[in-house]
Design a protein around this nucleic acid. Structure first.
Lengths: 229, 229
DNA sequence: CAGGCGCATATTGTATACGATTTGTGGTGC
DNA sequence: GCACCACAAATCGTATACAATATGCGCCTG
């Protein structure tokens, strides 16, 4: 499936969204170069618009722009990777708690359908899409908690998490989110705030465990440091 | 004091920084219009650069851009205001804890000097500058905790807090941050992580208490709603 | 043949020109 | 005199042209 190009009025936000999705589904790998002219051809817009979206993505941490060099899909360092998950562990348990207190039957149904969509994607062997949905699940919790600011923030952190997973994923096994997510939905259904918080905390810890964020395997920190003596 | 205009090469980031400072010190009020041409004249750059900074500030939540209308200093709604402080209360206590474990004597000295600068600003009756320093104190905690991601995030939230204070500040009294900040520095000196966390939590609650975030006084939610029936 | 210098090309950065939209104002008709 | 319409000014949005910078290739020299 190639990127959908509408007949008219492709806006900067749409391009950013498409790129985000491509990153989230691992169709775009960390470090990939994003040439402006190329994107212009793909989306049929002027460089002005493309540059807007690239700057926007830089702000969210998905893209790194090097002056006079160009835009690249970000490659989070180990420290950045740890910080992303640390930040998530500060925020998300509180969101799970809030969501448990506010979730309506409609919300529950939505989450269940969401998980089903993820499972279907896996059955179709669309691993990237399943990964994206799995991340989006977390964003939906913030939406249910009715916290727009953190919903936005979390969307960024989740997208960056996809980059981190692409770089530091340890095993070849599939993500085993399903159990945690199901447990969380159950807690929301029961309005069990404490349970939801605990499950979310554990779930994030699980995720972290499956990453190889040990210091040793770090790539070239800085050429200067790498060649020192 | 007018805005400093250098002889050459004023970059988009610099402009965004200057505007942020002006907002933070209440020299720019919520709702103020930011005309592009005007900023071009002030900073002696083309609209391209000005637009870059405005978009950047929109991303941080300090500026609202209305299509074909222009850029305005943001006016956080009550809900947004609550969300900002809620987010801070999720994050900052954890930062205070981490900072307590990492703070060096140098860091302590830095914070003490920082507080002195704030006091000096107050003595000079530069209330806006004192307010800015008081907010920056919180960002410095994240820096000491060595958490770059949250430091950036917190800088944004603190800046937005300045807008919220401008809109929803209840009394005319000066901010009484000093005591909390002093207590926090003492806890850092003692490497008292629990104490630091508790003080920070209480401090943020104090701040919130001094705001009038009750529902009633809300401005016009939407003209449609306001005129309904 | 190896190393380095310089030009040619590709790509990004910035300014400007042009088009679209909004908003205020003046005139005209009722 | 009031309301409505049309036009004009101001302002923003987009595309494009031009300038600056980096990079790769070929040639020249030792």
């Amino acid at each position: 499936m190639t990127i959908n190009l509408k007949t008219k009025s492709t806006t900067a936000d749409e391009i950013a969204l498409q790129l985000t999705k491509a990153i989230h589904t691992h169709r775009l790998q960390p470090g990939a170069k994003l040439r402006e002219d190329e994107l212009c051809d793909i989306f049929r817009v002027s460089r002005t618009i493309v540059r807007q979206s690239l700057h926007s993505l830089q702000h969210t941490g998905l893209v790194t722009i090097l002056r006079n060099k160009g835009a690249f899909v970000a490659k989070p360092t180990l420290k950045e990777a740890r910080e992303v998950f640390e930040a998530r562990s500060f925020i998300e348990p509180a969101m799970a708690r809030a969501a448990a207190l506010r979730a309506t039957p409609h919300d529950i149904a939505f989450l269940e359908q969401h998980m089903k969509a993820e499972k279907d994607a896996l059955d179709r062997e669309e691993v990237g899409e399943a990964l994206r949905l799995s991340g989006d699940f977390h964003v939906q919790i913030a939406r249910i908690a009715d916290h727009a600011l953190i919903q936005t923030l979390l969307a960024q952190l989740v997208a960056r998490s996809a980059l981190i997973i692409a770089l530091y994923w340890r095993r070849r096994s599939a993500l085993s989110d399903t159990a945690s997510h199901m447990g969380l939905v159950q807690a929301l259904r029961d309005q069990d705030a404490d349970g939801a918080e605990v499950i979310m905390k554990g779930h994030l810890l699980d995720l972290l465990m499956q990453l190889d964020l040990s210091d040793s395997s770090s790539g070239p920190v800085s050429l200067k440091d790498a060649l020192r003596k």
